[in-house]
């Protein structure tokens, strides 16, 4: 899967939460360790559900975990 325009702070948040391992986070989120690794490396963008679950585990908002680095979109974008 191609690298995405979304960056994240998962590694920092894991260390701030008692040096949580990828395996521990994966078990709490309900995905595999390889998926956490792919998300952390920016190779895979998770679904909203997984993103919210991660944010909930770290006790922060979703946009504290994930950051969109692409060009800002106008409100018309995405409207059919």
């Amino acid at each position: 899967m191609a690298p995405t325009a979304i960056t994240n702070s998962i590694r920092r948040l894991r260390f701030e939460h008692g040096e949580m391992t990828q395996q521990e986070l994966a078990e709490r989120v309900g995905v595999t360790r390889q998926t956490i690794n792919a998300i952390e490396a920016g190779k895979y963008s998770p679904s909203l559900e997984v993103a919210f679950r991660m944010a909930g585990i770290f006790g922060v908002r979703v946009d504290d975990v994930f950051h969109y680095g692409g060009a800002p979109q106008s409100p018309k974008d995405g409207v059919p």
Binding site: G30, V31, T32, Q34, T35, A38, Y44, V50
Partner: peptide
């Protein structure tokens, strides 16, 4: 343990 992990969205 790996075998018990259900298939996730990326898989």
């Amino acid at each position: 343990r790996d075998a018990r992990t259900p298939r996730d969205e990326r898989e």
